[in-house]
Write a protein that binds this DNA or RNA. Sequence first.
DNA 1: TGTTTTACGATGCGTTCGCATTGCAAAACG
DNA 2: CGTTTTGCAATGCGAACGCATCGTAAAACA
Lengths: 189, 189
Amino acid sequence: MPKQVDHGERRRQIGAAVCRLIATKGLDAVSLRHVAAEADVSMGRVQHYFATKDELLMFAFELISERVAARLGAVHSDDPATYLRAILLELLPLSPAARAEAPVLAAFLAQAVVEPRLGQPLREGNDEMVTWLAGMITAVRPGGDPRRDAMALLAFVDGLMLQVLIGQVTPAAAEDLVEHQLSRVLTCG
Amino acid sequence: MPKQVDHGERRRQIGAAVCRLIATKGLDAVSLRHVAAEADVSMGRVQHYFATKDELLMFAFELISERVAARLGAVHSDDPATYLRAILLELLPLSPAARAEAPVLAAFLAQAVVEPRLGQPLREGNDEMVTWLAGMITAVRPGGDPRRDAMALLAFVDGLMLQVLIGQVTPAAAEDLVEHQLSRVLTCG
DNA sequence: TGTTTTACGATGCGTTCGCATTGCAAAACG
DNA sequence: CGTTTTGCAATGCGAACGCATCGTAAAACA
């Protein structure tokens, strides 16, 4: 057999090419040939690592999910209010990394509307997020209905992400909106 | 020539089929043949009324935009607060009509991320909406930064629409969230 | 009534798609 | 050192795609 290669690494390289393609041309620009070209490998290699196109797309979805999770996991703060704000800002396409990932997330989010298999993991991720947010809200401002506020905040940043992506809201304005929205939730319980 | 036919009406029939297809199977399920089948007409007819697939999709986009605008235009109230709440709720997939249109909007919204030609009309519509919302907010609660609150509210309902569409939030919960969010904006300026 | 124009239906073309198949060089392994 | 297994590249296939072309029935118009 030829040189033993890191199977997972190769899959991640190809998956990254899929994400780049989705971010720049949209989900329907993803074809095996385009992916191969974007990853600068042969189409046979793509097929070697992914049995079907569906498997390829699912892997790309897991890949960006993990990337976003990693980015969120890298955020830290001892002050709950600061922590909370940092996480919300991390969900927006403000940093270069987030700007690369957000369009991909948006594409999969829209696809989830008509593809239940994407909806489930998204719901689970959101649920986790809501629980975490609610905990932080409680830490800053006990009482009220933290879970409701958490859901509202999450819907808010999700919508804001899209607005930034389509150029409706500038990154700076988005930051300001998050700040304002957060202060309202945290001060007038 | 054969029976003179209402050109616009035929285009709207086909455009409606496109919207139905997008709502149930997603944007990439839209092909001339599928559209023809969904509209129960021949493919030749579809081509007769739309020179290219792109023109067909653009028309479908204008069609749902007009439908949403019509739905919003049908909302009336003398009380600004009631009016404001009614409009926000109308943006969510709560009524059967809105439930049919929201998935189509979501699909085009995601497409707008990678297709500037969709982004422009969406931005204009959102801008109008923000201005209107800001006016209503001022009418209820003068002072503050009504435009900022309007943008925040719009981002919130946009995100909430998606959450409802992917089954993350029930229509009842969405209604409750809007109520709560609105009261916060209107009472603690 | 003849002519023209409209509204299609039908068919075909070239391309691209996902996927299956085949072949083979190279390294791991006994 | 030979065998086996792995990692691919190449090619081909049938289906579906957007779009162009052609033919024609029928109604409006002269």
